[in-house]
Design a protein around this nucleic acid. Structure first.
Lengths: 145, 145
DNA sequence: GCAAAACCCCACTGGAGAACCGGGGTATAC
DNA sequence: GTATACCCCGGTTCTCCAGTGGGGTTTTGC
């Protein structure tokens, strides 16, 4: 129920990749990190994780970097969070075979709550987020004038 | 997005208190702990926290113990989790005044997801849970026969 | 070729919180 | 006035997050 720094970094990085997606050119860790104020050595790990999940692809060597594996409207926030947070969703049962009826019932309700949250995250894609950001910036600009 | 052991212990304890609510007599930590397989010294801390949140009342001295502060259908799982998990919900902004537009947009979506989960938790009261448990036990019994 | 640019992998640290355990204090019923 | 409970405070162990560092490997461009 809390937004870890990790996940936020990951989303910010993918937003950056989404912005450069049309160019077809890979973006380097350094550039992303500089643009979004993320420690680059840390971001490296997150991108590696997301590469293993198939969210991004990497190009090694000089002129290399990262590219989104699919279009920005096909990547949801749930995809990102699940990739980063790993298998820490749905613990099948808290302790070893407690199997108390109470425990089961509690766990089912919790699962329902998680599902509700995940549904929300699934509805928002990178594309959506970028659009939200743009219209927000437009709004800020109007205020400024 | 994960059910801490803490919260589950708390819910189990309150379920026990709910079962004995009609008697009007307080339940001791030891009994609750024994019934639900919870380390008693740990449960003590959780009950103390929930007392400070006004979920339960305590009776000191011999023949003392804990009682629900209100009826079981007036206590939701959200009440319990918020009491136990404390102020760890809604961090106003991740870092000190980052104020990046991206960060704000992400945070708003996250807040929406949290709200969805909390709504689910709010809908389930101790009463509901107890009934769910009872019907589940009935079902298990039928299977056994 | 070869050097620079980039990703890749592994390991380590410091701090925070979870899940406990233990000691002693304090109120209350009998 | 004593046994029975809650009450408060502190320490311990363990795991995870956030971030750093060292040493590889692959690829581009000269």
């Amino acid at each position: 129920m809390e937004l870890s720094c990790k996940s936020e970094y990951a989303i910010l990085a993918l937003l950056e990749l989404a912005a450069h997606y049309d160019s077809g050119e890979p973006l380097q860790i350094r550039q992303i990190a500089a643009e979004q104020n993320i420690p680059d050595r840390y971001l490296e790990q997150l991108l590696a994780t997301m590469r293993r999940s198939g969210l991004v692809r990497s190009q090694r060597g000089a002129r290399g970097g990262y590219i989104l594996a699919r279009e920005p409207w096909k990547i949801s926030l749930l995809d990102i969070v699940e990739s980063i947070e790993g298998l820490d969703s749905q613990p099948p049962e808290p302790k070893e075979g407690t199997k108390s009826v109470e425990g089961m019932v509690i766990w089912e309700v919790w699962k329902e709550a998680c599902l509700a949250a995940e549904t929300v995250l699934q509805k928002h894609t990178l594309q959506d987020l970028a659009e939200k950001r743009d219209s927000r910036q437009q709004l800020d600009l109007m205020y400024y004038i």
